[in-house]
Structures are given as structure tokens and as C-alpha cells.
Amino acid sequence: MITTTRRTALSMFAATALGLVAGAALTPAAQAADAIKIGILSLTSHSPSIIAEGKGYFDEQDLDVEFVSFQAAQPMAVAIASGDIDFGMTAISGGLISLAEKGAVRIIGGALQETPEIEGQKILVSKAAHDAGVTSPDKLAGRSFGVTTQGSSFHYMAHKIADKAGFDRSELKITPMQKVPAVIAALKSGQIDAWSIVPNIAGALTKGPEVVEIGKISDYIDNYQVTTVFTSTRNVTDNRELVTRFLAGLSKGIDDYNAAFVDKTMGADDVAAITGMVHQYVYADQPIDKAGPRIAAGAMRINSGARLNVASVEDQLKWFQSEKLAPEGVTMEDLVDTSFVEAY
């Protein structure tokens, strides 16, 4: 995994230094299936591609898939820009927007979505903060809020909480911790006061005495499009047909994911089979009987057909720009190509 990212950086430098970034080839071969590389993180929300590959949905589309694992979303976006991988799925971040502005990547669909009927992201505080009276999100003024980096989705959520709760954004002390495990450690030890996170991690945390849940993100952000599907601008302009085939395969994977983990309408055997596929990449270091429940726990809905909530994306872009975390000149057209999926 690590070698992948390092190679990514190296080859990116080499390729761009030679000015070849636009020249790399992905021309469809006459007979052989098209080879594509998909970047994934070891999170349940990345299951749809894994399921689509496992169930042969990508084969149906004549796509030969290779998964490339990443530790964080940021290098995945850079790897798409450099042409090392073709498709990825992460939260909208300042980095992603910046790469879109540079004409390297485009959002082509929506993925994880906050919906009223399904449990979504939680707002958490440390025990100490809770004891000190922070029992609801509108009492977060003057408190520290953990984020991985500035311009991450956590930063966005923090400010949206402030906006809705009616206090100034600057009254939240945004505290960058670089990595999710570091945020968790800081929250547990009371070094930071608050954080927001997807339900399966939140659930594990609030089981212990150190962390208390005080609210839901869906109360503060309407129809939050948490993650999106994106690819390189080159694919969007020169390989539209390949993108369409990828999204078709992915959509079938999304349907299976929702049926298995979100709506729970799938038979137990099928769920077990799907869990087995996902387990190869998610919680792979734990035995299946331990990993299985964790994979299923707190799964959030992924938009069927990779539908994209453009309003939410626009709100996020505006926020990044208002905080000067994204270049002012970026437009929705730079960031999103809505021609592949249903946009709403």
C-alpha cells in the first residue's frame, strides 16, 4: 500500500517533469478487456467496487479491474491526477477541488449520502467536555473540534454545525490531527473536545466511557453528499464510453451493497458471500466472524446509480471558497461532470 503511494508520487513527478501527463495511454484495445485501476480505502463505503468485481459486474462491462489500496483520500486524488489510477471515491476535500481547478480530476457521480431514514454521521464529544456542559452541538462554541487536516470534510462539518447552531465559525477551534486514529486518541484522552464521524466508528467509540454522542450531522447539513466518485479529466473527455461502463458496473455493486448492508433485503447467504468479498480489503487483518459484523455495522446509504446531489456539492464548494480553502475561480463545471449520472 505504501509503495503504491510512493511510486505514485515518483511517477507523477517523472511524468509531469517530462510534460507527458497528457500523453499517457489508455486507448481501448481492439479485443482485450480494458484494464482499469480503482483506488480504494479500507472502509466499508468502498465496498461497491469490490462487490462489482467479485460478482463479475465489471467483467460484464468488459473491464479488467485492479484495486490499488490507499491510506488516505488525498494521495488517491493525486494518483488520479497523475494517471496512476483511473477511478476513486472519497469525500470532497480542498485537495480534490484544487486538482479539479488544475484540470486534472472531475467528479462524475455521488456515493455516500446522508438520508433521514438511515443512521448517518454522529457528533461526538469527550467525556470531559460533556461533563463541562457540552451536551448538545449548539454548546460547542469556544470548544476544540478535531479534524484530520484543514479543508477536510470534518472541517466542513464543523463549520456547518456552527452556522446552523448560530455561533461564529471562528468560535470552534479547528484542531488538525492528520490522521483518523490520532483524532480518536485525542478525543478519548480529552485533548480535543469534539469530532464528527461515520456511524460505525462513532458506535465503537460511544461504547466506551470516554466519548459521548451529542447529535447527528443530518440535523445540521441537508442531504449531505458525503463522498463522490471521481476520475481524471482525461477519462471524462477522451474515454466517455469507458467511464459509462465503469459506472454501470459500479451501480450494480451499489445496489447489492445497499440491499445487503443498508436496506437488509438480501438473503443471509448472499450477504455472507458479499461480506466475504469485502473482507478481502476491509478489516482484512481480523477473522471473518469478527470482521463481518463490523463491515455491516452502521453502513450508510450509497446513492443508487451513483446519483449525485449537486446542491450539496455546490454548498461544499462554496464553503471551501468562503474559507479560502479552494481557489476562488473554480466553478461547478470545473469540478463536476453531470452528464454520466442522474443529478438532483
Partner: peptide, 12 residues
């Protein structure tokens, strides 16, 4: 350092 890290995260 924080500025550099933020710039990296934002790919600025």
C-alpha cells in the same frame, strides 16, 4: 509547518 501541511492537504 501547519501552513505547509495544510497546503499539502489542499493540494495548493
Amino acid at each position: 509547518g501547519a501552513y505547509i501541511l495544510m497546503a499539502g492537504a489542499l493540494f495548493a
